[in-house]
Write a protein that binds this DNA or RNA. Structure first.
Lengths: 107, 107
DNA sequence: ACAAATATTAACGATAACGTTAACCAATGT
DNA sequence: ACATTGGTTAACGTTATCGTTAATATTTGT
């Protein structure tokens, strides 16, 4: 569905959320660690994580040793979706360039 | 600069603007043609094009035959930038997977 | 010169996003 | 039991975004 891309890109448009994604790409972290890492208040971080969770960009599990901690991990599916869209675009772009090249050759 | 990604993703988060980008990837078009193609009013389309222009995603030139028409074309530089960011992310992701794999092997 | 077409800008209102403070819940530790 | 820690939710105000209608160039055609 095309709606998924909308929301994914909206999620990634926010600088704080993109920082979170960057951090989680390097490995899972707790919500609090993410908050301090990006300099955000716990409530604000929780909101951002809820957005990312709703869109399927991250998952949050309870830590086995300390169930208070909620460990978040990245799920790359949506990111692949965005990259796929970009690659499709660039395919069309290259075709457009070929047409332009052919147009020049015909003069 | 990291600020460029912010604005580019914000621009692409809007469904109408993403339709415009999709259309322009297939070839240049006038502002009016884009408006009717996506079912948007001329002022709304003009606003969207101004956003895309400001961020360097498109360029608008005057048509040679009819100077009233403003022909817009796609500039793929910013899109490449987004794709580069995604690819970097996926690189980190794959390293994370390798680490996890190694972790499993050690048990 | 005048009218129509193309596109942009201005001003307005409605809607949604974001952060902050306060309140709340669940789990841990003493 | 009680206080503390980690995280989320609620309520509030601020700010930004988007679309619409009206007004403003600029170019084309008669």
């Amino acid at each position: 569905m095309t709606g998924a891309l909308d929301e994914t890109l909206t999620a990634l448009a926010d600088p704080t959320r993109r920082m979170v994604v960057d951090l989680l790409a390097r490995g899972p972290q707790s919500a609090g660690a993410l908050a301090t890492a990006v300099g955000s208040s716990p409530p604000a971080m929780s909101r951002h994580l809820r957005v990312l969770r709703r869109l399927g960009l991250v998952v949050g599990r309870h830590d086995e040793d300390d169930a208070r901690l909620r460990i978040y991990s990245l799920r790359p599916d949506r990111l692949h979706e965005v990259r796929g869209w970009l690659e499709d675009l660039e395919d069309f772009w290259s075709h457009q360039l070929e047409g332009f090249k052919k147009h020049l050759e015909e003069r």
